[in-house]
Design a protein around this nucleic acid. Structure first.
Lengths: 239, 239
DNA sequence: TTGCAGTTTTAGGTGTGCCTAAACCATACT
DNA sequence: AGTATGGTTTAGGCACACCTAAAACTGCAA
């Protein structure tokens, strides 16, 4: 599951990649990674906000570039080179977000869009110097792990919040920075990354949370989160 | 000479501008500004590294957008809106350069290319926050003045080094960051921005400099700069 | 004044990345 | 097994920004 990394890091493909190619690679990686599901053309189209035919065409192109495996009508998977490219983009994105929050006073809910544009414009040198200045952070402000310079990534053991059974005690580890509603919900209910909570009830993906440690009878107001939001959060199970 | 600035700053044009349009506007402004000459299509083509017909086409487009005045076969000039856009880009460019040098440890000869890409990717918000963090600098590391948030710009009284007569005492005020040879020459001869020097001899644009204060007989090795390089520097006259 | 040289524009064409509409396949259901 | 329903691909086009080659204009000079 953990991506294999060839020694010298990004090679030819990374240099020929256009902004679009970079976005496709990152999105394919994100879908496969976050959900653990196989990536379909239409899922990709929906996430990227483009039409289905556009995806088909781009997949043909990226297959020729050696970035994806794609036989007609079959699901889409990144090659090793494609994963390299995706991880390089993820690294950029998360380092930039960390910097925007730490040094330019951005809120964690403001950084995504800005990073989305900047990540295509910065050089390798820039990324390395930024990484050094920030002290080689391991996670970004949303709890997402940042790939190292060699593009390896250690995953904590996490699960999508929408898949956790009722009554579980969990710790909030990551939020998808691309889902503003999720960030907003955590802000308004004062639930930071690292908070421990109990899943009081589940309803087909929607979830009700209470502060951890609340046992039973106390009538605490729970926090209700929609499926869309719980799908944008990953948690680790406690005990 | 100093561009007039309408109250609320950048309006429609700034938001519809593509990367190319932004580059054209900035380049037209730079040519008119630095040289004081009227801008021809071929000068623009050469500076931007594109063909002449590409310039013609782009001028038609930018005229429709209300960014340039351009009657066929006539020289090119920015409209007020075009100058707004150009100044917004100059502001971005120079603030980004200042930041790269001050906080990411870039050399002043490394920043141009990086800033050239970043300036098209950052938001207005980003620029304003960066400006605040840097303490509203008035000049960038190359001595070039940085337009304020209202896009006005105060020019010091300067002249191109290649136009200064022999025997003049001058102070180095600005270097064109887009000319690496000029930056290199100043680095190797240890001449910083603000240095006072005497123009010992001129030769059709090429110039020999000596440290200021050297009067006559002392046989000091002068610094010889080509026309290409002296054209990339601006100085103020002393006394 | 006419002609020529150089600049500028028109004409026609390329590559990228996107779109809609229409054909196509593969699977799930009756 | 046969067919409907969806996801997927082909077909045909558009916008942007660039190119080369050829035509058109300007203005200087014989």
């Amino acid at each position: 599951m953990t991506p294999r990394t060839s020694a010298q890091g990004r090679s030819t493909a990374t240099h020929t990649a256009t902004t679009s190619v970079e976005d496709y690679a990152k999105t394919i990686y994100g879908l496969a990674e976050w959900d653990g599901a196989s990536v379909t053309a239409s899922a990709l189209a929906k996430t990227l906000g483009v039409s289905n035919p556009s995806v088909t065409l781009m997949m043909r192109k990226m297959a020729e570039l050696g970035l994806v495996e794609h036989r007609p009508y079959a699901p889409i998977a990144l090659t090793d080179a494609g994963r390299q490219l995706a991880l390089a983009m993820v690294r950029r994105h998360r380092l930039i977000e960390t910097w925007l929050v730490r040094e330019l006073g951005y809120g964690w809910d403001e950084v995504h869009e800005e990073a989305e544009r900047l990540e295509h414009a910065v050089s390798e040198t820039f990324v390395d110097r930024l990484d050094m200045r920030l002290g080689h952070p391991r996670v970004d402000p949303h709890g997402d792990p940042i790939p190292g310079p060699d593009l390896t990534l250690d995953y904590p053991e996490t699960e999508l919040l929408c898949r956790v059974p009722a009554a579980a005690q969990v710790r909030l580890e990551q939020v998808d920075d691309a889902v503003p509603d999720a960030l907003l919900a955590l802000d308004t209910h004062r639930v930071p990354i690292g908070a421990q909570v109990t899943v009081t009830a589940t309803d087909g993906g929607a979830v009700v949370l209470s502060p951890a440690g609340i046992v039973g009878e106390q009538a605490v107001e729970g926090i209700r989160l929609t499926h869309e939001i719980t799908h944008a959060m990953r948690v680790s199970l406690i005990r």
